[in-house]
Amino acid sequence: MLSSTLARRTCRSFCSARFHLRSSHNQTSSQQNAEGPKTTHFGFQTVPEESKESLVRNVFDSVASSYDLMNDAMSLGVHRLWKDEYVSLLNPGSKGPMKCIDVAGGTGDIALRLLDFARERYADRETTIDVVDINTEMLKAGYTRFKKTMYHNTPQIAFREGNAQALPEEQFPSNTYDLYTIAFGIRNCTSVPDVLKEAYRVLKPGGTFACLEFSKVNNPLFGAVYDQYSFSVIPLLGTILAGDRASYQYLVESIRKFPPQPEFAQMIVDAGFTTGGMFEGKGGAWRDQWNGIASIHMGVKL
C-alpha cells in the first residue's frame, strides 16, 4: 500500500551486479539452475535477474508523475507518520552534527525531515546529507524540492547518482558516514545483502544503519483485512488515479516478497552490524509500525 513511496525510492536502488545466492531470503530468492540463467522475483513473477532492474525502473517511471498523490491516497497519509517516527527515532543533531547518507532517497523527503528535525530541535545547521539514487529523474525531483527550502545551495545537502548495491569508492569512501538511511528502497533491490554490505562499508565505526520498509503484519485478522485492501483497493486506486494498474499490483506483490522482520534483521547481522535483541520493540532489532505494515530496522557498525 503506501507503496508508492516506497516504490519510488525502491526503484532507484536497483542493483545490478553481484548477486548473492540466498534462497532462504524471499527478497533474494534468485536461483541458478544448472540449465538456465539466474532468476529473481519481480512481484510474484520469476524473472531473469538482469531484467529486474529495467522492469522496476519501468514501474517507477510509470508511477513517478503521480507519486505524491498516490502515496497519500493509498496510505491515507499514514506514510508521513511512519517517516516522522523514523526520523525522531534517529534523533539527528542531538549530540552535534552528523554526516548522513540517504540512499534511494531521490525526492528528498527523508533528507528534508532529517535536516528540519536537527535544525528545529537542536539548532543544528551543520548536519549534512548526501542523497543517493539510481534514478536521475527522482534526483531532479528532490533537487527541485530543495530549491524551495533554506538548504538549497548549502553544504548541508548534495544529490548524487549511485547504485545502492555498488556505491563507487571514489565518491563514497569507506568509513565516512555517521548515519545511513534507506526508506522504502531496499525492497526493490536485486540483492539486499549487497546493499547491506555497501552500507557497512561506507559507515564509520559507531555509525548507524536505519531502514524503513514494508514488512509482515503480525495479527492474522488485521493481516487479512490488509491483504484485501492491498490486492483490491490499491490496484484499483492505481487505475483510477494514475491510470496504471499493473505497476501498483507489482508494488503490492513486492511487499509480500520482502523477508519478514526476523529474517531481515538476521540479514543485517550477517552483514556485520550489531543490532538490538532479536525481538520487536524498544531495545529490539526492529520496531513495527502499525502492527508490522512497515518496520524500522537498525544496526550499528562496531
Binding site: 527515532l89 534523533n91 539527528p92 552528523m98 548507524t208 536505519a210 543490532t275 524498544k282
Partner: peptide, 11 residues
C-alpha cells in the same frame, strides 16, 4: 552516538 544507543538499547 545517541542514534546508535537508541538502535541497540532503545530510545
Amino acid at each position: 552516538s545517541e542514534t546508535a544507543i537508541s538502535a541497540l538499547f532503545g530510545d
